[in-house]
Amino acid sequence: MGILLLKRLGMMLLVMLVVAFLLFLANEGDPYSIARGVLGPYAQQEQLTIWLQEHGYDKPILVRFLEWLGRVVTGDLGVSVQYKRPVAEIFWSRLGNTGILAAATFAIMVPMALILGVLAGMKEGSFLDRFISVLSIGTTSVPEYASAVLLSVIFVYSLDLLPGSSAMSNGFDIMQLILPTMVLVLYGFGYIARMTRASMAEVMTTHYIRTAILKGIPYKRVIVKHALRNALIAPFTVIMLQLNWLLSGVVVTEYAFGYKGFGALLLDAALRKDIFVIEACGLAAVFVAVLSQTIGDIGYTLLNPRIRFN
C-alpha cells in the first residue's frame, strides 16, 4: 500500500517534469522568437543577441530549463510581456476566480449527478432510468458554447433575469456566477450521472446483492449498505477525472462570458504569445489534472478493500 502510494506520487512527479520540459521547449526552445516578442518585430539582429546574452539565453537549453524550473518552484513566474507585470500578480487571482467557478460547479453537479445516477441504476430499464438516461445524454450533447448562447438568449435577452457578462468589473457578484456555472453543470453532470448509473446497475446485478436480498435484509439497507458502497467506487475516480475536464470547460465558458479566470488568461496569453503566462497556466492546469488523477487513483485503492489489503 505504501509502495503503491510512493509509486503513484513518483509517477506524478515524473509526468509533471516531462510536461514542464515540453512546455519550456515549446515556449523557450527558440530564444530568438522570445527576444523578438519582447523587443518587437523591428529589432535588429544585434539588439536581439545582446538582449539574449543579458537575459542568460545563450546557455544550453538544459541549464536554462533547470534554472527556470528553480524559479518556478520558488514562486517566480517571470514577467508578462503583455501586461508588463510579474506573472504571479495576475496569475493567482485569476486562478482563484476559476477556483470559485469550479467549486460552485462541483457543489451542484456532483450531488445531482450521483443522486440521479443511483436512482436510474437501481432499477435498470425502468421509466425513471430511461428518463434520466435520455436527459443526461441530451445535456451532454450541448457543448458549452452552444448552451452559453442558448441560456443567454433565454435568461438574459428574453427574461432579463441575469447579467449577460461575468466580467465582475465592479467586484464579486454572485448573479454573474450563475450562468457560467449553469453552463458547466449542464454539460458536465450527464457524464458523471451515466457513469454512476452504469456502476450502480452493474452492482445491482451482482451475486452479492442477490445474497443480500435473499438474506432477508430490508431493501433500503441492501441499497445503502451493500450496493452504494461498491457502486460509488467507480464514480469517485470519474469525479476526480472531471476536474481535468472542468479545466477544459472553463476555457470556453470563461471566454463566452468574459469571466476573468485562468482559462481566459491562458487563451489570451496563447494568442498573444505571452510565454511566461502560458507556462504558468499550462503548468497549473497539468498540475491540477495530474494531482486529481493521482488522488483518484489512490482513492480508488483506499475505497476498494480488494486492493487495499493486498
Binding site: V19, A26, V251, L266, L267, A270, A285
Partner: peptide, 15 residues
C-alpha cells in the same frame, strides 16, 4: 499517453 492525457484537453488544443 499519460503525459498527453494529463493536459486538460482544451488547454492542449489551445497550446
Amino acid at each position: 499517453a499519460n503525459v498527453i492525457l494529463s493536459f486538460p484537453v482544451m488547454v492542449l488544443y489551445v497550446l
